[in-house]
Structure formats: C-alpha cells, structure tokens
C-alpha cells in the first residue's frame, strides 16, 4: 500500500497538532513572557536583571558544573559496564537480565529514589555507619546535602541511559575489525583504543548529550538532596513561580538556561562532528 504525500500529510496532522499545542505553543508563550513587565508591556529588563545578577550566574555555574560531573561519572561507570555487557556476557539471557536490573530503578519515582539516597548518605546512613564501624573515620562524613550527593543521585538515575546508548552502538562494532587490529600486531588494549573506542563514539556522544541535558533540567533530585545548601537554576525557576511570584523572571531564567545549554551542546557537536562523520 503506497502512502501518497497527501496521505502522509494527513497522518502527520495528529502528531504535528500535538507538538504545536503542547510544545511549541507553551514554548512560544514562555518566550513572550520573558519579555513582559509585571504590569504588562514589553521590556528587556528581565534579561538585564537576570544577566547582571551574580546570584543567578552562580546558580547557572552550579547547574553546569554538576551536570558535567554527572556526565563524567556516567561515562566512567557506564562505559565499562556497557563493554562488559556487549563483549563479555555470553548468554543472551544474561544480557537481558542486566538490562532489566539497569532499568528497574527507572520504574520508581525520582522522589522515592532521592529519599533512598538520604538514607544511604546521611550522618547515620549506611555509608557512614560502615566506615565508622570499620574504623576508617572518627566522625561521620558530611556527604549529604551538598553537590556530591546531587551528583551521586543524578548519576544513579541517568546511568542506564548512558549504558544503553553506548551498548547500542558498541554492539554494531564489527568483530572482524578487532581481529584485524590484533592480526596487525596490536595488543588487546591497543586494539580497543585504536578501533573499538573510536567506533563507539557516536554512542558516547549521544549518551553524554542526553545525560547532560537531563541533568541541567533536573529538579527533584537536586531540590531534595541539596538541603537548601546548593542552588541550581531549576530550583530558582521553581521558586519564581511558587515563592516570589515572578513568572516573567522564571521564563527569563528558563530561556537563559536553554540558550546556554544549546550553545554548549552545539559547540561540543561542532568540535566532534568531523570525527563522528568518519565513523559512519
């Protein structure tokens, strides 16, 4: 059955309508809002006040720094895991089991998992109790309610995404390429660095971008695990709507956050675009 362009356009109506109504529309409203004065009328004042305030820059810096650390952590933990799954798990059911174990945490809510981390990282939590019991420390460590706990909490949630992203690309690496590298004199580690890793970069990049973007926009984990001590932009935005009742500032902050993130991701892709094209 051939789908004519007319049919295709008709089929697309639903998704396009949904997209316009629930994404482009609100997004447009948000942009408009950021240029509004509280009493009405257009202004750039929101942008000037946000962009000149060190407090907002500090929050943005925290957001980006935390997101960077989360991405790095997910890479460092996720790549070896993905490699193990693809190259060292013999049985298909073993692989599926690991995927299930990875995905299961995603079925519980973020809030529940954040409180889980409070239990683990708190002064009387599992980590501190064990370290005290073993005698490695004298007084409990202050892990919770700081940047570290936010990073741990976010990395935990976003790790499966990184692993799956890398797995899906790693699986496509032709084993005969690795054999060829070995045949030509490369040690297993050299074969990995020269062949396997470069070919897995699209998965690394895709996973990194998704993890970074989700970290930047995360709200629940940072707000619960920060204990009020760490300010990230998403919490600030929330406050504008709930506490200070300045939706226009909230909108401005959102647009600024979006613009900065897009800029960073765009730069990253631009720098690596040549490399990525090679692999295709």
């Amino acid at each position: 059955m051939r789908i004519t362009p007319a049919n295709a356009a008709f089929l697309m109506l639903g998704p396009i309508a949904f997209f316009v109504l629930f994404f482009l529309g609100p997004f447009g409203l948000l942009i408009a809002e950021s240029f509004l004065r509280p009493g009405g009328g257009a202004t750039l004042a929101n942008y000037t006040s946000v962009l000149s305030d060190a407090y907002y820059w500090r929050a943005l810096f925290n957001t980006l720094l935390i997101s960077l650390w989360v991405t790095v952590a997910c890479l460092l933990l996720g790549y070896p895991l993905a490699y193990f799954i693809v190259f060292h798990v013999r049985w298909p059911w073993g692989r599926r089991l690991i995927y299930v174990l990875l995905m299961t945490p995603l079925f519980t809510s973020n809030i529940v998992r954040a409180f889980g981390w409070i239990v683990i990282l708190g002064r009387r939590g599992i980590v501190n109790s064990s370290l005290l019991a073993v005698g490695l420390i004298d007084t409990p460590l202050d892990i919770l309610y700081g940047k570290l706990s936010i990073i741990i909490g976010l990395a935990y949630i976003l790790l499966p995404i990184m692993v799956l992203s890398i797995c899906s690309v790693l699986q496509t690496v032709d084993r005969s390429l690795i054999e060829a590298a070995r045949d030509l004199g490369a040690r297993p580690s050299r074969a990995f660095l020269a062949v396997t890793f470069p070919l897995s970069l699209p998965g690394v990049t895709a996973g990194s971008i998704i993890v970074f973007a989700l970290s930047v926009s995360a709200y629940v984990i940072p707000s619960i695990l920060s204990g009020g001590r760490v300010m990230v932009t998403s919490i600030l935005i929330f406050q504008q709507y709930v506490a200070t009742f300045r939706p226009d500032i909230g909108a401005t902050l959102s647009i600024v956050l979006l613009a900065v993130t897009l800029l960073l991701i765009g730069t990253y892709l631009f720098l690596f675009e040549r490399r990525l094209r090679m692999v295709g």
Binding site: S176, E179, A180, D183, M278
Partner: peptide, 16 residues
C-alpha cells in the same frame, strides 16, 4: 599480534 603472519579478511575488515 605476536605471530609473523598477516590475514586478508573476507569482508576486508578495513577500519572505517
């Protein structure tokens, strides 16, 4: 990698 032989593979196995 330590053997003094080299292989030409069926599907060439060129590094893309």
């Amino acid at each position: 990698n330590l053997r003094p032989v080299n292989t030409v593979f069926q599907q060439f196995a060129l590094f893309p």
